[in-house]
Design a binder for these strands. Structure first.
Length: 292
DNA sequence: CGATCTACCTGATGGC
DNA sequence: TGCCATCAGGTAGATC
């Protein structure tokens, strides 16, 4: 998503922004306020931190977009292109073309983070983000304080497996809860948590502190490996075709899922039947033979 | 402090 | 045909 938007948006200027469902800009007092912070400004870059897309503007402010469960960003040629149901925001560019935000469940949101000012108190990084030893994540958090609470981003922050070990050692929480806690590691959701745990050969309900050094290194490796693969195959689109890129194109990584959405099917490693369990209201898929 | 629950929404699907 | 329950990529904020 980030790469596709970057190719498309950099250098374009927001001509007008229309908001037809104020809920998706709920951080702003009014939709008008949101519009005013964008109109007349051009896009400098498109970055990402965790699950947030961060569109940098020419005045130093940032448009942040989180797709939630059902959000889509879709390119359109112009206003005569048929608008999908649940189109809540339309960005029109002076160079022509539109970008629409579509979101049936409205769990996603968009907001413009103010230009950082010198009189602002210094941004307080999250406990885990402070462990980063490099990357662009820290600069991004300072530029967008709303994202400072996020934990380590597997690509935007650098962290060795030894520091990763320190994060796990301090917690009795089940592994899956650690992986999906955005304030610890940013960017992993329900699908990728299950795929990462399978790749690492670890059960979702193992206590984080119970991992041996070898297991910690396997998990550390699995996080980058699974996410790198998923990005290479442009993400996971399930049967309802909800996740699509800005051209409406679905991803392909679902074809490579080892466990997610494969209840009752044979494990691709050992032929054992994949199990599904509901944990805190969400599905968890795993192989009881490959994951210990 | 950390861990856990709830509410926020619409739509698809399946049983009766 | 309708009615009801269940499930779906997420997380802020309340509460334990």
């Amino acid at each position: 998503m980030r790469a596709s938007l970057s190719r498309d948006l950099v250098g374009k200027k927001f001509k007008s922004v229309s908001v037809t469902n104020g809920r998706v800009v709920r951080r702003h007092k009014t939709a008008k306020d949101f519009r005013a912070m964008l109109e007349g400004h051009s896009v400098r870059n498109v970055q990402r931190l965790g699950k947030n897309l961060v569109v940098g503007l020419d005045n130093g402010s940032h448009l942040v977009i989180h797709l939630g469960m059902s959000g889509q960003l879709l390119r359109a040629k112009g206003p005569k292109d048929l608008k999908p149901k649940h189109t809540h925001v339309v960005f029109t560019f002076t160079q022509g073309g539109e970008l629409r935000y579509v979101d049936p469940r409205t769990f996603g949101e968009l907001y413009v983070s103010k230009v950082p000012s010198d009189d602002d108190p210094p941004v307080e990084l999250s406990k885990f983000a402070r462990l980063s030893i490099g990357g662009d994540g820290t600069a991004l958090r300072r530029a967008v304080p709303e994202l400072a609470h996020l934990g380590l981003d597997p690509f935007e922050d650098q962290i060795g497996w030894d520091r990763f070990a320190a994060i796990l050692r301090s917690r009795t929480t089940p592994l899956k809860a650690v992986l999906t806690d955005q304030d610890i590691i940013a960017g992993i959701g329900n699908i990728y948590a299950d795929e990462i745990l399978f790749s690492a050969g670890l059960r979702f309900d193992r206590s984080a502190e119970s991992l041996s050094t070898i297991e910690i290194r396997r998990l550390h490796r699995a996080i980058s490996e699974v996410l790198t693969d998923a990005i290479k195959h442009e993400g996971s689109t399930l049967d309802d075709e909800q996740f699509v890129d800005p051209d409406g194109k679905p991803g392909n990584f679902q074809q490579f899922h080892q466990v997610y959405n494969r209840e009752g099917q044979p494990c691709l490693q050992c032929r054992q039947t994949i199990q599904r369990e509901t944990v805190r209201g969400r599905s968890t898929y795993y192989c009881e033979k490959c994951q210990a």
